[in-house]
Design a binder for these strands. Structure first.
Length: 780
DNA sequence: TAGTTTTAAGTTTTT
DNA sequence: CTTAAAACTA
């Protein structure tokens, strides 16, 4: 049992525990993943547990993959254990047993947007905002394991109207044969409750059940566990109430608080030794979350001790914030590479001291920049791009939110499930085929989702000739693609009805990709998007190609198609793509960092209204504090916090106050730089702008080209270094490179005239518009 | 009615 | 500044 020797006594106890239910309260960085993975292996090796009888559930695909991989490293046989997310397990269950709830195994999973579309049909005279609100409430209801008939539904929304709409929605959803996210948990529970023999079959199959991040489980997930559990089985959950950050999604902290009562005989093991962060970092993190009431109470100890003081930087605006991060990161990497430049001497007086003294070379990937909302990533992306700093944005779902991708996925969904009303509505008349709303309504009402049924309807009803022709085109295209799934040969049936479609040059590869390409071309959707994409070149067609490429990993069969669609619905992270490799800075939301760790972390946007948001009070505010805690405890060696004096929102610049958390945090444990607002002890006053600004401007080679800090720093007062002079070279986001041809003093300050290499000429007030105008080259 | 232009509105966090 | 809804034109 060599592998156990790496564990501390509590961890060993947790690994070797059997029998009664076990609740492991694992603080941040206390090695809980190691405990779970070791436990899986230990059960197999030492207790002779059949790997196939082990079920381990997590909340993210990434965590599931990591857990499986690490368990396999200890014991190969762990590869046979079922390690999945809750939702993926639910989908797996429903594919096999959904028929017990009237569900065909060919169902597709509707995402939130699809739900809104379907609900929009039911609430056709309501504004879209209200539809969204209702969709959210239905989702919460399912998280709470509440059906339309449930009296407790008033917890979600007291009105009778909501109950009616929920009822209609469920009926309509059942008609499509598809499920939403909530169903993936709720329906399996209902099936097991209604079919005891099925339930006992699953209880017999999974003798060991483990749950990671249990603090994020919702009520429905708790019910699912209860169904899977029996006293003959072993149940072990791991969680940390201080890291519960998904309340808005239905997570129920009480699940973990009340676990011992719900599962009698529960033993509790606490893991309170933090191996990840320095003591300084841990103190910063704890000092904020300490303001929360109602915690289980752990005392997390830093095994590593000491460490550098975390840095709190007050910056003028978000562009400075991005520049600050960029310079901080670039300096640490350059310092590590041994290329200590003279300009770092200046920097070393300020915040960059620690980094440039660093003995260990820093890699780009040592760094993570954290923000509250995805929208905030933009500043960092542009700044890093400009400076040549490699970065990776984690968790951005943008690809799957693109119109062209949704279009193609809708076609594929309709192919997989001909009753998919949402997909049909989206695509039947796109590109335009003369099938208007009236026709669509008639088809949907009759459920005539096939060429034959539509023809029948045309015979008896009064569809216009135009609509009839359009429907024929659409259905023959679908049928043709479907025949590819069955026997691999396109039918080309009744060729006269097929329109000649402009080809866009999409290339078919292996597996399912041929079908995806055929569908994109034949439906005319590829040509449609090529035409509507004049501005961005052929990016949209390129995206369609990307989707087709992704499909090449799947078999060109009905099963392969379902697998492909399910994978896309449940895991949109695109982590497994080639982008994952390579040395790069991580840009990530606070939420997405859970379970991750980085040597150096920058927590940005610590302003009231951004983090926490202004509308957060009570329990919601406590959740924001936990989010702060999660972010800070990701850091191993160095932690930085940034806060801006003004922030651009909706294109307008608004003054902002420091985050509440900056008043709560243990300030003595921070090194504060920049212009701190009144009341912050230890402020260095305006010391930030000069030192930092100079270093920004003068390092102009290779990756770090140009800086604009000096021009903007201080309240509209350019530092001596940042003064514009005739002949200065300039870079502008829109106009490119140019030179200053004149500087004139006006009463509002200097007016700079610039002649660009493109021939364009502009003038600007240096104190207002210096952001767009970046000085390049030396400034002395 | 299809497609474009104008105007208004609005940004959490994610399986 | 970006996106969605409403108004407008061919």
């Amino acid at each position: 049992m060599q592998y156990l020797s790496h564990l501390n006594p509590e961890q060993q106890r947790a690994v070797q525990h059997t029998g009664k239910p076990l609740l492991i309260l694992a603080g941040a960085g206390s090695g809980k993943t190691r405990v779970i993975t070791t436990k899986v292996a230990w059960l197999i090796r030492e207790r002779g547990t059949d790997p196939r009888s082990i079920l381990a559930v997590t909340f993210t695909n990434k965590a599931a993959r990591e857990m499986a991989e690490r368990a396999r490293l200890i014991d190969e046989r762990a590869g046979d254990a079922m390690i999945r997310t809750f939702h993926s397990f639910g989908a797996w269950f429903l594919r096999r047993n959904g028929n017990l709830a009237g569900l065909d195994s060919g169902f597709v999973i509707y995402d939130d947007d699809d739900v809104v579309s379907l609900l929009g049909v039911i609430m056709d005279d309501s504004p879209k905002a209200e539809v969204r609100e209702t969709a959210y409430k239905i989702s919460r209801a399912k998280d709470l394991f509440l059906s339309p008939g449930d009296p407790e539904l008033v917890l979600v929304e007291p009105g009778k109207k909501f109950r009616n709409i929920y009822t209609l929605y469920e009926e309509r959803l059942a008609k499509t044969g598809n499920v939403d996210f909530g169903d993936l948990i709720k329906k399996p529970v209902e099936i097991m409750r209604g079919h005891p023999e099925t339930a006992s079959r699953f209880r017999g199959r999974f003798r060991v059940i483990m749950v990671d991040e249990y603090q994020d489980a919702n009520v429905a997930q708790f019910e699912l566990l209860k169904e899977l559990y029996s006293p003959e089985n072993y149940l072990c959950v791991v969680g940390d109430d201080d890291q519960s950050i998904y309340r808005f999604r239905g997570a129920e902290v009480r699940n973990i608080l009340e676990f011992p009562e719900r599962f009698p005989g529960t033993e509790i093991i606490k893991l309170e030794r933090n191996y990840r962060s320095t003591e300084q970092i841990l103190r910063t993190a704890s000092s904020v979350v300490d303001h929360n009431a109602g915690r289980l109470g752990k005392t997390l100890r830093a095994e590593r001790g000491g460490g550098k003081l975390p840095v709190l930087a007050f910056l003028p605006d978000q562009d400075e914030e991005a520049a600050y991060c960029a310079i901080l990161i670039a300096n640490s990497v350059k310092a590590g590479a041994g290329k200590r430049a003279s300009w770092q001497e200046d920097a070393s007086k300020g915040s960059l001291k620690d980094a440039s003294k660093e003995a260990n070379p820093a890699a780009w990937s040592d760094w993570a920049v954290l923000y509250r909302t995805n929208a905030q990533s933009l500043s960092f992306e542009t700044e890093f791009l400009r400076r040549g700093i490699p970065y990776r944005v984690v968790g951005s779902l943008k690809f799957y939110e693109r119109e062209e991708i949704k279009d193609l996925l809708a076609l594929l969904s309709f192919l997989a499930n001909p009753r998919d009303e949402v997909a049909f509505r989206r695509m039947v008349n796109k590109p335009a085929r003369g099938v208007g709303p009236v026709t669509v309504e008639r088809i949907v009402e009759a459920g005539a989702f096939s060429a034959e049924a539509a023809a029948d309807l045309a015979m008896s009803g009064d569809l216009s000739a135009r609509a009839k022709a359009g429907l024929e085109t659409f259905f023959s295209m679908i049928e043709n693609a479907r025949s590819l799934l069955v026997d691999g040969t396109a039918a080309e049936k009744t060729g006269k009805k097929r329109q000649a479609v402009k080809r866009t040059g999409l290339k078919a590869g292996e597996g399912l990709s041929a079908l995806v390409v055929t569908l994109a071309e034949d439906s005319g959707i590829a040509a449609y998007h090529e035409e509507h994409d004049e501005i961005a070149g052929n990016q949209r067609v390129f995206n369609l190609q990307e989707l087709a490429n992704a499909a090449s990993l799947y078999k060109p069969s009905a099963e392969g198609l379902l697998e492909f669609l399910e994978h896309i619905e449940l895991d949109r992270s695109m982590e497994d793509n080639s982008k994952n490799s390579g040395d790069a800075v991580t840009l990530i939301t606070f939420h997405n960092t859970k379970g991750l760790e980085f040597p150096r972390v920058i927590m940005t946007g610590l302003e009231q209204g951004v983090f926490p948001r202004d509308d957060k009070t009570g329990a919601d505010l406590e959740e924001e504090r936990r989010l702060f805690y999660v972010g800070a405890t990701r850091a191993m060696d160095e932690l930085y916090l940034t806060s801006c004096a003004v922030r651009r929102m909706f294109g307008r610049t608004m003054p902002s106050e420091p985050s509440l958390f900056l008043w709560e945090v243990d300030r003595k444990g921070l090194r504060i730089i920049g212009a701190a607002p009144c009341g912050f002890a230890g402020s260095t006053g305006g010391g930030y702008s000069g030192r930092y600004g100079r270093s920004a401007v003068s390092g102009g080679t290779g990756g770090i080209s140009g800086g604009m800090g000096a021009n903007r720093a201080g309240a509209g007062k350019p530092s001596s270094d940042g003064r514009w002079r005739t002949g200065d070279r300039v870079f502008h986001d829109d106009h490119g490179y140019g030179a200053v041809i004149a500087v004139r003093e006006e009463e509002d300050g200097p007016v700079i005239s610039v002649h660009f290499d493109t021939g364009a000429e502009t003038r600007f007030l240096s104190r207002y518009q210096s952001r767009q105008y970046t000085k390049i080259g030396g400034d002395s």
